[in-house]
Simulated scan of single mutants.
Amino acid sequence: MGADLDHKAVERAYARWAPVYDIVFNRIMDTGRRAAVAAAAKAGRRILDVGVGTGLELPYFGPNHEIVGVDLSEPMLRKAQERVASKQLKQVTGLCVMDAQRLAVADASFDAVIAPYVITTVPDPMGALDELARVVKPGGEIVLLNHISADSGPRASFERWLGRQTQHLGWRPEFPWERISSWYENRPHITLVERRTMPPLGLFALIRFSVGPKVTDAFKTAI
């Protein structure tokens, strides 16, 4: 497991990132953001964007959607507010400072939750995933876009080393798939729908979960 994170470290890191985040990360992560938005948009009208940051993906949602964006970093959210105002994004109905691990949102209140590049930045990833699942309506989806580290080889060794060097940056480069698989495999109401690699260089993955009874359990009930 990589270096531990804490909320204060993450807040400080993203306060530093806020002025340059779009310049550094917009183009290299744009394909993934568009794919994640397309997946979440199909799940329903009302969508919670967790870790909305500066709001790079907000213009990709259609006018018929209702988007609420939350983020731990107030400086990042101010950039998102500027984007919403300048582009007149009427589909964005709210932007709030909020912790992904303790969402101030009622149970089952969104058709989908999108969390782009978030799970590796929170101190308790499994707790955050539980919160995402809690606020999604039965039949809705959780859409993650995240870095998944290599299981072995030179890249795995490099990611372990990098994890020790980058705690102050507010993210965790060493994040194996087993952390996510162990989460959904132990939660009968969560079903993995899709996992596919995304650019650049397949370093990221689009991961979709449905919230509700396991597909196998639903099938048994039907027959």
Rank of each mutant, 00 (worst) to 15 (best):
M76F: 04
F110P: 01
T120Q: 11
V113T: 11
V84T: 01
A128N: 03
V136E: 04
P138Y: 02
D99F: 06
V68P: 03
L103N: 12
E74F: 06
V122T: 03
V118P: 05
G140N: 09
D130C: 13
E74W: 02
T93C: 12
V118Q: 02
M76L: 07
G140V: 08
Q81D: 00
A104C: 04
G140L: 08
A100F: 11
A106I: 11
L129K: 11
R78Q: 14
I119C: 06
Y117M: 11
L129E: 01
L103I: 08
A80T: 02
A80F: 07
R83Q: 00
V118M: 14
D99T: 02
E74D: 11
A108T: 14
V118N: 04
T121L: 13
P75F: 10
R134Q: 09
Y117F: 13
V68R: 11
L132A: 09
P138T: 13
Q88T: 13
T121E: 15
S86G: 08
V118T: 14
V122E: 07
I114M: 15
K79Q: 08
Q88R: 14
V70P: 03
K137E: 01
P116D: 12
A106Y: 09
A128Y: 06
S109K: 08
F110L: 04
P125D: 01
L72N: 07
L129R: 10
Q88D: 14
I67K: 00
Y117G: 02
M76A: 10
R134M: 10
R83T: 05
E131R: 01
A115D: 09
E82W: 04
I114S: 10
E141Q: 15
L129Y: 09
A112C: 01
R78S: 12
V68N: 03
I114T: 13
M98N: 07
C96L: 13
S73P: 12
T120W: 08
V105A: 06
P75M: 06
